[in-house]
Each structure stands twice: as C-alpha cells, then as structure tokens.
Write a protein that binds this DNA or RNA. Structure first.
Lengths: 209, 209
DNA sequence: AAAATAATTAAACGTTTGTTTGATTTTAAT
DNA sequence: ATTAAAATCAAACAAACGTTTAATTATTTT
C-alpha cells in the first residue's frame, strides 16, 4: 500500500506518540491534535487506531532495505567481515528510527494483533536464516566455531541495541559527555556500540583471543 | 510498607495483567474481576491504579535480596568467579519473576511516574557501582583488561536476558524442544543462557581465548 | 454485649475513549 | 461550468474508564 503526504504525517505523529506514551496511552485525539488534523481523518484514512498501528509497521518494515541479502551473497568478503557489516546494518537501522523501534519494543510486550505479530516474526525468522547461512559458511571455511547458538547470538545483538534506546542518555551522563554536541555524541556512541558487539560476536564465533 | 494477604493477591493479579496487557491496556475492572474482589477495593487499599503499580515495584524491588553485596565482599573468590555469580544471580532474578520484569520493561518504555523511575534508576546505579568496583578490583589484580565499558557490558546482560522473556518460546520451537517438560526445558535454557553471557563477559574482561 | 474499626458492596459520578454521522468545503475530472 | 470524488469538519454516539459515595456486613477491641 502507498501512503500520501497526509497519511505519512499522521503515521509519523502517531509513531512519536506511541513511542513516548505507548499505544494504549495515546488517544486518537492526542494524535489528531499533534498532527493538526480532524479526529475523523484517522478513521477516514486508516479505518481505526489499531489499523493505524499496522500502517506504521507497513511503512517502516516495508521500507527496510534488503541490503542484507546482497551483502551476504558477496563472494569477496570473509564471513567475519559479513558478520561485522550485519552488526553495523542493525545498529544503523535502530538508531536511525529509534521511535519506531521503541514502538516495536512496546508492541512485542503486549500486542496481540495478528498482522503485526506476523510481520515481526517474519522479520526475525528472515534474520535468523540469513545469519544462520552465514555462520554455516564460516564453519565450512573453518573460521567459525562448530557450535554456535544463532538465536542467543541475535538475542544479544537485538537486546543490547534495544536497551541502548532506553539507557543512551544515562550512558551519556555516566561518561560525562552531556556537553558534547548531539551529533558528535551519537557518532561516538554508535562507534562504541559497534565495537562492543563485534567483540562479543568474535568471542562467540571464532577461536582467536 | 507491609502488605496483607488480600493486597498481595491484588498486586499479583495486577502484575500478571500488566505484564500481559500493559498498564494502560488493563482496567481496574479487569483486575477486580480476575482477583475476585470488588472494584472499590483497589482504591481502598492502594488509593489509585497508579499507586497499585507503585506497590508492585515496592513489593518486588524491596524483596530483591542483597545477596550481591555480600558476594562482592567475599575475599576467597576470584574476580571472574564473582562476575559469573553475578550473571547467574541476574538470570535467576529475571526468570524467577518474569512477569514483574515484563512489567518493568514496559514501564521503562513509557512510564513517567517519578517514584517508579527513581526506584529503577537507583537499582541500575547500584548495579553499575557494584560491578564497577568488582572490575576495578580485577584490573588491580591484573586479570581484567584495562579498558572496560561497564555500562555497555550491563546493557548487554540486561538486554539479552530481557529479550529472552519475549523470545524464549521461539527459541524452544526453533531448537525443537517443545516436547520437553517445561521444567526440563527451563533448566536447560537457563544453563545455556548462563554459559552464553559468561562467554561474552569473558571476552570483554579478559585477554584469554 | 456494646462500640469501634475494617472490609466489602452495588451504584453512581463525571471523563475520556474510539468510532460514526451527515453536512460542508476543496479538489479533480468531464 | 458542471459533475463527481475526495477531504475536512463539528457534533454526537455508546461504551469504557478511574474514582467516589454511602450503606452494609465482618471483624476486633473494649
């Protein structure tokens, strides 16, 4: 489905409010007020508040570039390099759209909407498969350990990055970087997070020190 | 504050519903129905729905045994052993009270209640301090690396374990262990998770392979 | 046994909720 | 310029919300 300008404006407003206040903590009036539209427009364009949530996922998950697939098939890269790029790709995704990932985190806790659950599950399975193949390849080439728990590995990657959405400001304060410009801090933080997870994955995957 | 039987019954019912449906997704009537009490009892005992949520945190966080503190001070244990026990302590905590930790995860995303934010922040700071001391000790003794990012390390531990609450069943299915008895699977899972995080931490902390 | 306190109840309170209605305005197609 | 379609609006809808009331029943204290 394609969304027009007004629809995207509503979706982005809803996304921000759902992220900050939760789905059930946000009323359609809140959304209408913040987006400067009449309340009836939400039903008019999306049918219901629930379907507006679905639209958010349609827009955001649909827009997830499948750079990953082509990355994996690249024959010139070593398996560990591919893993590292996968990590950066994931970090980039989450920090680029933190509001959406906050919504997704909230939805995963409580939401029962079949369409949304399906979309998230499909995303996870796809991730697990791609990474699984990648690891098998590394094992064949003898550079990865024989026993690797793919799910736990991804759980750590996703869990760590997700948790940073909540603890990023605390991290900044703890490391006394509140006086840095946002842009600078964000880049520093991203790099540290990237190195951190790559270190973890290296330990899981390889036999090197 | 001390809670009587009836209050605990209400708290545990609310905890379960808040975990499954979220705070704003649960009505006081839902709680009253599930707990087989009159709806007015919630205001009577707790004052409001919001304060009932606070009571959940009071009961659960208040009950968190401070085994950790005494563990840290134990002079006969090596730093890496202490770290490993800390990991198991955390896993035990979360898997023992998954409903509460699900509530806490949800609350951290959206809740603005000062009392609750305070309680969670205090818990996190306390954790960071204890682990920070432990690591300094290991560094003095020359068994830990000189540069360790404590916050990111804890983010990984908490993020990984938190994420398992949501992905545990998927993990079970993926590894074809649905036919195992719950008890058996839970123990197996707990052990794997423990080993997993210990491997990660070892890579962050030490120079060994 | 009487009095005082605590627990429980059904009913009602005023708000807020998501959604729909029907009229009106704006835009696009003929 | 006329018609058709799309967009916008204020108002209304019933249902659900958290909380309070005032009366009643149970328990405890005197």
């Amino acid at each position: 489905m394609e969304f027009n300008e007004k629809q995207i404006q509503i979706i982005e407003t809803a996304e921000r409010l759902f992220a900050d206040e939760g789905f059930n903590g946000t009323s359609v009036r809140d959304i209408a007020d913040e987006a400067n539209i009449n309340i009836a427009m939400i039903s008019y364009y999306f049918g219901s508040k629930e379907k507006l949530l679905e639209a958010i996922f349609e827009l955001r998950i649909g827009n997830l570039k499948t750079r990953v697939e082509s990355l994996i098939k690249n024959e010139t890269l070593r398996p560990i390099e591919k893993v590292n790029m996968l990590i950066d790709e994931h970090i980039e995704r989450v920090l680029e759209k933190p509001l959406f990932h906050k919504v997704m985190a909230g939805v995963q806790l409580t939401n029962k909407n079949p369409a949304i659950i399906k979309a998230i599950t499909r995303l996870k399975i796809s991730n697990a498969e791609v990474v699984g193949e990648l690891i098998k390849d590394g094992q064949k080439k003898g550079v990865f350990k024989k026993k690797v728990d793919v799910i736990l590995m991804l759980t750590t990657m996703i869990g760590t990055v997700n948790n940073t959405i909540m603890s990023k400001d605390y991290y900044r304060e703890f490391n006394k970087q509140v006086d840095l410009p946002d842009e600078t801090f964000n880049e520093t933080f991203k790099r540290r997070l990237s190195i951190h997870i790559k270190t973890l994955f290296k330990a899981i995957l390889t036999n090197e020190a």
